[in-house]
Amino acid sequence: MQINNSDKNDDYKYYSNTHLEYVNNNINTESNYFSCVWDEILKDINIHNLLDMGCGTGIFSCNLKSRISGKLIGVDGSNYGLEKAKEKGFDELYRVEDFCSQSLPLANESVDFVLCKDVFEHLLDPLHLLLEIQRLLTPGGYLLTHVPNHFPINGRLKFIFTNKIDTFNYFPGSNAWNFPHIRFYNYESLLDFLAQANFKLVENYSGFFPKLPILDKLLRYVIPKYLTRKLVNSNPSQFAEGLTVLVKKE
């Protein structure tokens, strides 16, 4: 278990521990909004070694430890996050300060599955990290990534009236000049980005994160879930709050 020995309560340079604490204290590890994606993936894919890249406190992958056959590995820049992930039973943990320039401390082709959730939108050079993930994945290995979609139809309507880039109030304490998200994706640009490292689309799971215009909550109850997912998957850029795709290393 490799964790930097500096004060675990120090804020990570690029991301406040306040955000990590909120997620850790308010999201259920066993059943949370991302669990539905894992349930679908594990129907068809047997995972051996899983890397949670940008794991934070491990909240979105720790419950997979009993569902994979190998190691659960985490990489993050926050000592606080890594200590919490250690408490959740991760097999290996590594601290990397800068995802845009540093190599990941893992061997080539050493894992067969990578989760990279809510990371790429924070990086000045997301391609560096993507190529590192490609390096350490086995041939035919999988990358599951999730990024926010700030500007579906709902987001664009909110932007017109508020002129706030944080259309869904992800970081209420931040201003435009220090907003943690610095890269913005729609569905098409996300796939184009992933193709730069020769990843090919396997499945689109964006339908699990609908953001339907105007009557969002009402429509979720009126329209059956499978039809909602079908609508959102048909045009994630317009109707999904989160863009979630599974891709495969060629």
Rank of each mutant, 00 (worst) to 15 (best):
L131K: 15
H146K: 14
V114N: 03
F193L: 01
K8M: 09
K71V: 04
N163L: 14
R183L: 00
S189N: 14
N235V: 00
H150R: 08
V96D: 06
G242Q: 15
Y221P: 00
T244D: 05
S66F: 01
L190G: 03
E97P: 01
R183M: 06
D11G: 04
N4H: 11
Q196A: 13
L130D: 01
S174A: 15
Y205D: 03
G89F: 10
P139H: 13
N233D: 14
L227H: 08
F113A: 04
V232M: 08
D44K: 15
C62S: 15
F184V: 05
G56P: 02
G54V: 01
M1N: 11
Y226E: 15
P213M: 09
N204I: 07
F151M: 11
V202L: 08
C116G: 04
S66T: 15
G242S: 15
H146I: 10
K117V: 00
D216P: 10
T244W: 01
L123Y: 04
I59S: 02
C116P: 03
E132T: 05
K211Q: 13
Y14T: 07
V37Q: 03
Y15F: 15
K217D: 14
Q102M: 13
H122K: 05
L143P: 04
L246M: 10
C55I: 05
I153Y: 05
E203K: 15
G77F: 01
C55L: 07
L124T: 13
T18R: 10
S110I: 09
T29C: 05
M1R: 11
S16T: 06
E83Q: 12
L212N: 04
L227N: 07
L82H: 03
E109A: 14
S234Y: 12
T228G: 00
L127H: 10
L136A: 06
K158C: 00
D91M: 07
I214A: 04
Q102V: 00
L246C: 07
I27V: 14
H181L: 07
V37Y: 02
Y14N: 11
F99K: 00
W38Y: 14
L64H: 04
F151I: 03
G140M: 08
P126D: 01
I68K: 08
L157G: 06
N169F: 12
Y205A: 06
F199H: 02
G81R: 02
T138R: 09
F120R: 04
R229Q: 14
L93C: 10
T57W: 02
E30Q: 13
E250V: 11
N233W: 02
K248I: 13
N24Q: 11
L215H: 11
F179N: 08
N154M: 12
N26K: 10
E203Q: 15
S16M: 03
N5Q: 14
S103G: 08
A197N: 08
C100G: 13
N186S: 09
P126G: 06
P172Y: 05
E40S: 14
L20T: 01
A240L: 06
E121L: 07
